[in-house]
Design a protein around this nucleic acid. Structure first.
Lengths: 227, 227
DNA sequence: GTCTCGATCTCGCTT
DNA sequence: AAGCGAGGTCGAGAC
């Protein structure tokens, strides 16, 4: 890992063209050849970058200034024209052990699979990831009256999720095994449901269920937590 | 901008929980208080981070080791436990003039608006960003037979885009002015169309059109290019 | 402010 | 390897 602070101008040509005027920035050169150009703001996304695999060639422009050219296999190029280097250090970081995550949609699905009644009273699980021709339904359940219930789970419930569940319901309602009692019901379960998504769901006869993630976690054995 | 290389352990708690075991990493502390934790690999995304607005508090853990705690307004916290600092420098970067881009979907739309016949023979433009209740249609056109044609443009055509166009068509077909000759036709135009999107489009009676961006650029005056 | 949609998205998993 | 869905998405533009 090499860290460089320099006055530089950056031009990218690849899937699009992008240009950064001359200014002082941080250049992060990673061991795999990738380069990140960061400024003192924005969020974690660099102003410009080149993803690995790629190679850096340090050369000289026509006017004698230093120019680094980063090229990828796919002919993308990042040209860094350097006017002045203010800082330049290299560091051996070793291999990173990597990130452990907990709490994304998959986990939400696991928790709801264990406690389906929190979605709607009397709901019992038939199976998770119930397969259809266009992809698996998150939870297939049955309600107290014996109706089949397809549950789509999202962290944030938006219009796309309702569309997805609608497509599933269309297919599921063609399966005689699921519709013995009547049409398959749909429930859209999310930690947060956007107004437009709620309107669309109601329009399609789909129920909405707000999920309380913290309460669900509380139902589980606390010793099962990751760290 | 402060650059720190340190042996550290990082824990994030917010919308999810994430943990990084002790290892040597680069910590980038930006002027707005945001923090990025980078390793010597991956692409531009940090292993862990805190987005602004947030504040860093440098303190000491129970065992005497340094601990930096980064907190956001929304109660997200990033704890960095530091075992050893290998490098620590600060730099004044000033304000960045920012990035200029060229070649994104907007340009594709501009080019296709100028040359609608490249989407389908005989197509003429009625207007760009034709408004509907749920958002604007990219291009509203008319074909040689006088039928209205709604065009949705994507760089990469996926299933969401077909859904979007379907919703538009549903609304447009309620407008008598557009349906004098018959129902509004839909065309899904993209540089690349995923198989599932193509199948869904066909199922909905929506035509697909592959767009050749470079050929379109060639139709335009080359002196108009940005850089 | 909120909401919507694109992205050199990135990342991870499945086929 | 390619496709597809999710993201602590981020970011820009519209309303």
């Amino acid at each position: 890992m090499r860290l460089v602070v320099a006055r530089c101008q950056v031009d990218y040509a690849g899937r699009l063209s992008a240009h950064l005027p001359m200014a002082t920035r941080v250049l992060m050169l990673k061991a795999d050849g990738s380069v990140l150009v960061h400024s003192d703001g924005g969020s974690y996304k660099p102003l410009n970058w080149m993803s690995p695999p790629c190679t850096v060639k340090e050369g000289t422009a026509d006017d004698g200034r230093a120019e680094w050219v980063v090229t990828s296999k796919t002919d993308d190029t990042l040209r860094i024209l350097i006017e002045e280097i203010l800082h330049d250090t290299s560091h051996d970081l070793g291999v990173d052990p990597g990130l452990q995550k907990d709490g994304v949609e998959k986990h939400l699905q696991e928790l709801l699979a264990d406690h389906p009644a929190t979605i709607a009273d009397g709901l019992t699980l038939v199976r998770r990831e119930y397969p259809t021709a266009i992809g698996p339904v998150d939870l297939m359940c049955r309600d107290a009256d014996g109706f089949s219930v397809a549950v789509e789970i999202k962290r944030r419930g938006e219009i796309d999720g309702v569309e997805q569940l609608t497509r599933y319901l269309e297919l599921l309602n063609r399966e005689p095994l699921l519709t013995t009692k009547g049409p398959v019901r749909g429930i859209f379960a999310a930690q947060e449901i956007k107004p437009q998504a709620r309107v669309l769901a109601e329009d399609r006869g789909i129920a909405c269920a707000l999920v309380d993630y913290d309460a669900l976690r509380g139902l589980d054995d606390p010793t099962e937590r990751l760290f």
